[in-house]
Amino acid sequence: MEALVAILIGTLTACGVYLTLRGRTFPVVLGLTFLSYAVNLFLLVMGRLTVGKPPIIVEGVTEYADPLPQALVLTAIVISFAMTAFVIVLSLKAHLEMGNDHVDGKHKP
C-alpha cells in the first residue's frame, strides 16, 4: 500500500508542477490544486499508514493511529481551500481587467 500511495503522491505532484508552469491562469489554478492534494495526502501518510486503529486512548488497546497528521491535514485543507477560492477570483479579475487569461497579461501571438 505504501508504494501505491507514494506513486499517487508523485503523480499528483508531477501533474501539479507541469500545470503550474503553464502560461494560462486556469491550468495554473488546477496545478496549484493538484499540488495541494498531493501535499495533503503526503501529510496524512506521514503518520504512517494504519488500518482500523483508534487515534485516541481506548481501554485495552496498545497500538494507535497517529492523530496529529489528521489535525495538520485538516488545517492544510482549510487553508488550501481558501487560497484556491481566492486565486480563482483573482484570476477572473485579471481576466476581466486584461482581456485575456495569460498569466503575464499578454495576448497570444
Binding site: 501539479g16 503550474t20 496549484l32 499540488l35 495541494s36 498531493a38 501535499v39 503526503f42 501529510l43 506521514m46 496529529l68 497528521p69 495538520l72 492544510a76 487553508i79 488550501s80 487560497m83 486565486v87
Partner: peptide, 15 residues
C-alpha cells in the same frame, strides 16, 4: 502558494 506547498512537504517530512 507554491511556496506554501513546499513548506508543507518539508514540515511533513520532518514530522
Amino acid at each position: 502558494l507554491v511556496g506554501s506547498t513546499l513548506f508543507l512537504f518539508a514540515v511533513g517530512t520532518l514530522y
